[in-house]
Design a protein around this nucleic acid. Structure first.
Lengths: 334, 334
DNA sequence: GGCGCTCGGGAAAACGTTCTCCAACAGACT
DNA sequence: AGTCTGTTGGAGAACGTTTTCCCGAGCGCC
């Protein structure tokens, strides 16, 4: 009942530990008859390799650390799901850490994961600047892929959505459906997603209206901020509110309904990310869907390459094109 | 730059590996002067213990496996967050597995986690019946705590919300605010949460109206089902829809708005779980809040007890009282 | 002064793998 | 026949800890 080891299998099959290891790992050819005996014995005894011993000897745990800022941010569960599935498909397990948006906790978790000898790290950095040191140090020790948010240039491989392209899709759509006075409800952080979307808005909105780039309110990526931000721009009488993510859009929608504004009649509202809530809000929120499964696939592939090829090769920054999802919140006015 | 081991620290501090291990692990008293030297050397070299070696020798990885049916179910992220924080606070890391509601995948993940030598398992079983064998087998090898859903009696320690009490809170509230013709939009699975809530509704609703226990529609725990279920009970002209969870309630709300029904004027709607979306829906959904942090704390405490006390003692099934959160969806009619 | 004791320290044996040697033996070529 | 090459198997050394012995020194006690 207790643990059965290679020794036990060796004894039962009448050969040496080395041979058993070889047939089970397939690391060197072994006589067909011996192989059969070994496999039978292993099966009969219910042998399960001890991953701790294997990790110690082969200096590889088959484990990847995943560090997130906040699992309760509704964008991440889908990402976690895709990542864990992709990694499990390659036989890797996932050590999970949620650092609660705190770069200090993040550094500790990364340290802990490294001492647990993860083969690689997937990190969504909590803060563009304050995460940098810890991430760079970690990247020097194991393959590391940044996801979703950046962390300064030249740190590590990264995979993210093309925020500028997404914002351009939104602005084109609004222009095509006759919106002219747009406002931006954004986030002021230095997180790359915040900065890129902000910049893309500023660049694209000028085409609609020279005044548009100036009409913005910057706060956090939250529903509360969405509610508050509406009041800051409402005087400008916008006919469209472009929000930096779906949570802000949800908040904006709530406040607009309180104010008695008609969406999309009086004003259109758009989000970013396509979290589940965007489809379920009333009206449904027009948003930019991140290709989550593809992001996960790219990230694991990047890791796989580094793990196989002994970490050589230039750094890669992969940007995936997002998709516009049009819902009622931006329907053209009759 | 490469890995620094106990040997290196021993050499640098001029004593033996054993001594270094002792002072760093604090496992036996050591002379103050030697201790100081060792600590300085360890600090200077940047020593980080190799957890793989430690795990091999001490037969404990400091790691807990967490197996979920579906991280994308919006109830789980908060639970994951609390669990990982609680476990990290005890110096444990979390190996995460999402089995996508598939008991077969669940069994494989559990097996994989066991061969990775997790010290314990936290499992939210995917299916009351079909998860049973794998969970029972795992529970025989390591401490295991079931969360949220059950898996047949006598399998392992468990922590969950008191579903019956929660449903009673809802029914009392509806009765107190003058609702008489209630309907139940539930789930038909054998998952314990589904069954318990269903039973509690049947028991409690009889007090409001002898016909109430019969007025129910059973499907899945999803928004889509909530939308569909409304049509099945609408002919009964209910003045309150009691939903088995918040997702169903969200769906019901959507369909009611399509039908032109006024919530809460014509009909009240209640949910269960208090997922973030419940507060953000319009109108806000009256629901039963699960004490997530407390659930997580109880679960880790249960694990801690088993891990410390060599697994003895009777099985415990802990039920925590939930809290009613009253929002607009069940406001009394004027 | 011998006897027990604690106390600080080292040598070395685990833990369960993987992997590098090395031995034995077969067949093939000189 | 002798050497070479390739194939199959075993012995044993790692990997970096923790832990069990054991030793010597210091100290109080009859």
């Amino acid at each position: 009942m207790a643990d059965v080891t290679l020794r036990d299998v060796a004894r039962a099959s009448g050969c040496s530990v080395a041979t058993v290891s070889r047939v089970l790992a397939g690391t060197r050819p072994v006589g067909p008859e011996t192989a059969r005996r070994v496999r039978e014995a292993a099966e009969a005894l219910g042998y399960r390799p001890n991953q701790a011993a294997r990790a110690l000897r082969s200096r590889s745990t088959g484990t990847v650390g995943l560090v997130l800022p906040q699992i309760t941010n509704p964008f991440y569960p889908a990402l976690v799901r895709e990542l864990t599935h992709a990694l499990h498909a390659e036989g890797r397990a996932v050590l999970f850490a949620d650092c609660d948006d705190d770069p200090k906790a993040e550094a500790e978790y990364i340290d802990d994961l490294l001492s647990r000898r993860v083969d690689a790290l997937l990190v969504v950095p909590a803060d563009e600047h304050r995460s940098r040191d810890a991430v760079a140090a970690a990247a020097a020790r194991v393959p590391l892929v940044l996801m979703d948010r950046g962390c300064g240039p030249g740190i590590a491989d990264s995979v993210a959505v093309d925020n500028a392209a997404g914002m351009a899709l939104v602005l084109d759509h609004l222009a095509a459906t006759g919106r002219r006075r747009v406002c931006y409800l954004g986030a002021d952080g230095t997180a790359s997603a915040a900065a890129e979307r902000r910049a893309a808005y500023a660049a694209g909105a000028a085409a609609l209206d020279p005044g548009a780039p100036g009409r913005l309110a910057l706060g956090g990526f939250s529903v509360e901020w969405g509610r508050a931000a509406v009041d800051l721009v409402w005087d400008a009488r916008p006919d469209a509110l472009v929000c930096a993510n779906d949570l802000i859009a949800v908040g904006a929608l709530q406040r607009l309904q309180q104010l008695g504004a008609d969406v999309p009649g009086d004003v259109a509202v758009t989000g970013f990310d396509d979290i589940p809530m965007a489809a379920l809000a009333a009206p449904g929120i027009t948003t930019v869907r991140q290709p989550v499964a593809e992001l996960a696939a790219e990230a694991t592939q990047l890791l796989g390459r580094r793990l196989a090829g002994r970490g050589e090769g230039p750094q890669r920054a992969i940007r995936l094109a997002p998709e516009l999802v049009v819902r009622e919140s931006s329907a053209p006015r009759p």
